[in-house]
């Protein structure tokens, strides 16, 4: 964790809006969190909750128009990277903060060899010569566990499987020893057995390089094994944050509890019915006043309709944005 020093990355009241003729979408609306050196943070939520937009905002990769970062700060080593020159930002991207995406095929250039794609950031950020970069590329492929790296370097992305492509993406992301790696649904498109390989690889590499890791996912299971802390997002805001053990063991937000209870689990006896969260994910353009989750919430009270609850301390380094957080609890489960 932070051990007294200022955290490596501080996101403060980040607001990213998208402007469309139909209205304004507040995709990220006042998100604040810290990331310590070497820490692994999970950013969990369903589609449209703002988890990816948060990551893209940190990287300043929001397409403008229609999107714009309208407020807040992203402090990296104390410097607000939202306000630095684009040329300086380009150095931050890749060499200081790297990101991998869900679909490796769209992130890799189909007409360049694997070698060229790996050497480019090395030459650009690490100021290596072609020969040095080429040698390092081979080593990188070996580190990420691709068999026969020398031959693979000459190949193209389409000649590889999905899992191998994601390994190449990880090699590329780690090539310039970034301080932070952001994995945005990096294993979602992969098969379960391959998913396990890639997660294991990411965790191993970030531990040995001392890199901080942000895992963005909709799958609560994925982060349980790896994340030190977890932020749960819903409709553009962080609704609950805390240590993984607390978030999974004693969630204090109805949405977190609902998510945990709606998925069937292998370690729990099958029951006749699942307990879904009722209703639909709200339209971000027409968010109701008050708490955005209240229509789907079993614990909602009158106050929820008018006042949007802020994050309140509910335990040690555990906060929840719910007026009724003291009443929220997981229903009992029968173990398998």
């Amino acid at each position: 964790m932070t051990n007294g020093k200022a955290p490596l990355l501080q996101v403060k009241d980040l607001q990213t809006y998208f402007y469309s003729p139909a209205g304004v979408v507040k995709a990220v609306d006042g998100v604040s969190f810290d990331l310590g050196e070497g820490e692994t943070l999970g950013l969990v939520g369903e589609s449209g909750c703002g988890k990816s937009v948060t990551a893209l905002s940190i990287m300043r990769l929001i397409p403008d128009p229609p999107g714009r970062i309208v407020g807040g700060q992203v402090l990296f080593n104390g410097e607000d990277i939202l306000r630095i020159e684009e040329s300086k930002m380009r150095e931050v991207r890749g060499s200081a903060i790297a990101m991998i995406f869900q679909e490796p095929m769209t992130s890799l250039n189909p007409v360049l060899t694997i070698e060229r794609q790996l050497t480019e950031p090395l030459e650009l950020h690490m100021k290596m010569t072609r020969q040095q970069a080429s040698k390092r590329s081979g080593e990188l492929l070996e580190i990420v566990g691709i068999p026969d790296p020398e031959a693979r370097l000459k190949g193209y992305p389409h000649q590889m499987s999905g899992g191998q492509r994601q390994r190449v993406m990880i090699a590329m992301a780690m090539s310039c020893n970034p301080k932070i790696l952001i994995a945005d649904e990096a294993t979602t498109a992969l098969d379960v057995t391959i998913q396990a390989q890639i997660l294991e690889l990411m965790k191993e590499l970030t531990v040995s390089f001392g890199t901080s890791l942000i895992i963005i996912t909709h799958n609560l299971g994925v982060v349980a094994r790896y994340a030190d802390r977890v932020n749960v997002m819903y409709a553009g805001k962080i609704r609950e944050m805390g240590h993984a053990v607390d978030i999974y063991g004693e969630p204090r937000h109805p949405y977190t509890a609902g998510l945990l209870q709606s998925v069937p689990r292998l370690d729990v006896a099958t029951s006749a019915r699942l307990a879904p969260i009722r209703g639909e994910i709200p339209n971000l353009m027409k968010l109701p006043e008050g708490c955005a989750f209240r229509d789907r919430c079993d614990w909602a009270v009158e106050r929820c309709a008018t006042d949007d609850p802020p994050l309140q301390v509910v335990g040690k380094e555990h906060t929840s944005a719910c007026w009724e957080h003291a009443r929220v609890e997981l229903k009992k489960r029968v173990s398998a």
């Binding site: 379960v192 057995t193 094994r225 999974y248």
Partner: peptide, 21 residues
Amino acid sequence: AVPTPDPVLERKRERIVLQGD
């Protein structure tokens, strides 16, 4: 390979990670 949404159990659990594709 199926992850369990429980950090305590999940970190103790031995996993068989298959090699290759």
